[in-house]
Amino acid sequence: MPKIRKAIFPVAGLGTRFLPATKAMPKEMLPVVDRPLIQHVVDEARGAGIEHFIFVTGRNKSVIEDHFDRQFELEVTLNERGKKNDLALLSHDLPEAGSASFTRQQSPLGLGHAVWCARELVGREPFALLLPDVLVQHDPGCLAQMIAAAGALEERANIVAVEEVPKDRVHMYGVVGVGPSKGKAFGITQMVEKPKAADAPSNLAITGRYILQPEIFDVLEKQSTGAGGEIQLTDAMLALAKSQPFYGLKFEGRSFDCGSKIGFLAANMSYALERDDLSAAMREEMQRLMGGK
């Protein structure tokens, strides 16, 4: 498979589950410890070798563009105060000049439509898709594991990250059927959106990481609206699966659904516990809080 150089980040959502916090701040900029959610996801992509970062934005999302740009006034102030470590951190987080692109999804027509909006920036090459609502805590990151698995396939294929979920929760996810293994990946025989537990082909749910072939854009261009009146990515993948193979990868690591309050709070705790400068104090605070429960 050709090298995966580009990644799409759909960041046009309204974040209504986090109102009123997201009234003036995009949900993607909510901090997980001391880094915005979107920065964690971009870090994962960069660690996987992604060279071009494509953000599909919407209204009131300009702060995301500002975050991935230089802020000269801040840099001057930090330099004058001798804050060399902070300056180095800001410099490290910036994408290289010309490696970040931003395009608008002008209508909220779903994930499939958001992906289609990036078609001209991606071109005719395979690409990664990372949903910023999902964090995966592991080194190497989820996308790096997927790219390694894609390289081992030695064929043009689509790959989705999957993880086990309790059987009584499969109705909340897109679930895959499991075919023969090929390296660390396995062939996907079915993709069923939110099945009843009795009808689910497995308990492996699609997580927010994908490697897709450019033919998905051809499908999305003709895709009719599905559930919720939106253009659904799952519908397009089902159509593409008729002519191209799809594989699943059960990745190593723990995922956090930061689109939910509990998932977001759990991510903050878990990422803090992983930090050498915070873990001991965090454990003490957690024990203090739980002591009276």
Rank of each mutant, 00 (worst) to 15 (best):
L240E: 08
T189K: 04
G151M: 04
F186P: 00
K242M: 10
P201I: 01
I206W: 01
A205C: 10
T207Y: 10
A157Y: 02
P166N: 07
T234A: 09
K182Y: 00
V175K: 02
S243D: 09
S202R: 02
T207P: 00
N203R: 12
G228Y: 09
G183F: 04
P214M: 02
M172E: 15
V160N: 03
I159H: 01
E215V: 11
A157W: 06
K242T: 14
G228R: 08
V192C: 07
Y173K: 03
E155N: 08
G228C: 06
G177I: 02
A241E: 04
E163T: 13
P201V: 00
P201D: 01
A241V: 04
K184Q: 12
M191Y: 10
P245F: 03
T234C: 01
V176L: 05
Q213R: 12
L220M: 05
K196F: 06
E163N: 11
G183Y: 01
D218S: 08
Y210N: 02
A157T: 05
A239I: 11
E230L: 13
K167A: 15
E154M: 07
F186Q: 05
P195S: 07
Y210S: 00
V178G: 09
G151T: 03
T189L: 09
E221R: 14
G248N: 00
L249I: 14
E164W: 02
Y210E: 04
Y210D: 01
A236I: 05
I159Q: 02
Q244H: 11
I188A: 06
V170P: 05
I211N: 09
P245V: 00
S181Q: 13
M191W: 11
K250Y: 04
M172K: 15
A241G: 02
